[in-house]
């Protein structure tokens, strides 16, 4: 019998710590598949964020480092500049990339660092227990916006659109995980973002709308529906740059 599908070599055979219905597991696998497909496992270096995905190195079978909260792209800059022959990517959540690390994000992009960023937007802080994120939708209830986010608390920050304005940025695409077809699109975008780095094109970022049923207080299916119904309206999918 012919084997047509198996666990990527870049993914350890372990159970993740993520909640049921969480998007991180899916994206971890997509990244691992892309790394395998591009045959770069032995030269890839991941920078894990502070957030739910901090333990990504327990799942990825390649070199990884942690970074302080928000500083992933500064760390990645240091690695890539010293080892241009490696393929360096950051994996960051919305709080990490678009709140505490906004400065690093914008300036790394503006320098046009030849890096790849996987940006998980789930509109909430997961690891700390469901607080408002920079990407939280207006009206969305979180532990720090108990009556729903109001304008004064900031509107959902469209960091991808902001970054697309910068000349140093080569590629920005927003994808989602809410249907199998979207997951396939997400993998294509991730592959493109890595391919760009291999071809020394400059800074590439893939924003992924990802479910967090635990802090959206809903079931896994409802979470997917919520992305389709509300998130994609605020954060339109497709190639931004």
């Amino acid at each position: 019998m012919k084997k047509i599908y198996s666990r990527p070599q870049s993914l350890y055979d372990v159970v993740t710590h993520y909640c049921p219905g969480c998007g991180h597991g899916i994206v971890h696998k997509l990244v691992a598949q892309v790394v395998d497909e591009l045959q770069i496992r032995e030269k890839v270096i991941a920078v894990a964020p502070v957030g739910c995905a901090v333990l990504a190195y327990d799942y990825w079978n390649f070199d990884c480092t942690e970074a302080a909260h928000g500083r992933a792209l500064a760390v990645a800059t240091g690695i890539k500049r010293m080892r241009p022959e490696t393929v360096v990517f950051t994996y960051q959540g919305d709080g990490d990339l678009a709140a505490i690390g906004t400065n690093e994000t914008i300036h790394t992009a503006n320098r046009g660092e030849n890096l790849t960023t996987i940006f998980i937007n789930n509109a909430v802080y997961g690891m700390t227990g469901g607080q408002m994120a920079p990407t939280t939708l207006l009206g969305q209830k979180t532990t720090t916006t108990p009556h729903g986010r109001k304008e004064q608390e900031g509107r959902p920050l469209k960091i991808s659109e902001l970054l697309a304005q910068l000349e140093g940025v080569y590629y920005v695409e927003r994808v989602s995980l809410h249907t199998p077809q979207q997951v396939i699109n997400a993998q294509k975008a991730i592959k493109q973002a890595f391919q760009n780095q291999i071809e020394e094109k400059g800074f590439s970022l893939v924003e992924i709308l990802s479910p967090c049923p635990t802090y959206w207080n809903c079931s896994a299916q409802e979470a997917m529906d919520w992305i389709a119904e509300f998130m994609v309206k605020e954060f339109p999918l497709g190639r931004i740059k």
Partner: peptide, 26 residues
């Protein structure tokens, strides 16, 4: 070697972190 004028002190020390993690004197 590599010289970078960083956007902040936070970025500078974390770039050093990255270069050091990559095995270089930083």
């Amino acid at each position: 070697g590599v010289f970078i004028q960083a956007e902040s002190e936070l970025a500078a020390i974390n770039m050093v972190f990255g270069a050091s993690a990559a095995g270089f004197r930083a």
